[in-house]
């Protein structure tokens, strides 16, 4: 019988890079309307963190909850996306250089700061960039079916780093 205890990564079978790490252990939920359990950011392009659960603004009245470990239960309607996304964690400085090769966002340090997030496009694929509060890493979310493609793309873009 196949192993059903673990989620299979979209990158299974590919070589991992040092710079670009997959966060395969996250749970992700899109929530609609008032989320009483957590104080989500009211401002677009912002993320808040409470007890290890990040709430990212994604649309008016809609947030993405991202966490590790135990999933929190919420009252509001939601869609589970834990399996639907591939998330890459890249050191912020490298992420800035790599993303510049295909994403039009202004990621200069003066503009895009820890605790910020933004949805945009990279190589024709929708992405979400989340600059984690610690200021050290950025998380890049893509739909799972594009995970392998974006992984290959990021690795290729990283080939000519540092510059």
């Amino acid at each position: 019988m196949p192993d059903t205890s673990q989620r299979r990564s979209a990158l299974a079978g590919t070589a991992a890079g040092d710079l670009i790490q997959e966060r395969a252990d996250l749970w992700i939920k899109r929530v609609y309307g008032d989320v009483a359990e957590i104080e989500p950011p009211r401002q677009p392009n912002r993320a808040t963190a409470n007890n290890g659960v990040h709430a990212l603004w994604v649309a008016p009245g809609e947030w993405l909850l991202v966490g590790e470990g135990e999933e929190i239960q919420i009252e509001a309607a939601s869609s589970d996306l834990s399996h639907g996304r591939t998330v890459f964690r890249i050191p912020a400085n490298a992420a800035r250089q790599i993303l510049a090769k295909g994403c039009p966002l202004d990621l200069r340090e003066t503009e895009f700061r820890p605790g910020h997030c933004a949805q945009s496009v990279l190589a024709a694929v929708t992405i979400l960039v989340h600059y984690l509060d610690d200021g050290e890493y950025m998380d890049i979310h893509v739909a799972r079916s594009y995970g392998r493609f974006i992984h290959d793309w990021l690795k290729d873009a990283a080939l000519t780093l540092p510059e």
Partner: peptide, 10 residues
């Protein structure tokens, strides 16, 4: 109006 000034390709 939500996300700010963004590139046309988005």
């Amino acid at each position: 109006p939500h996300c700010g000034l963004r590139d046309q390709t988005e």
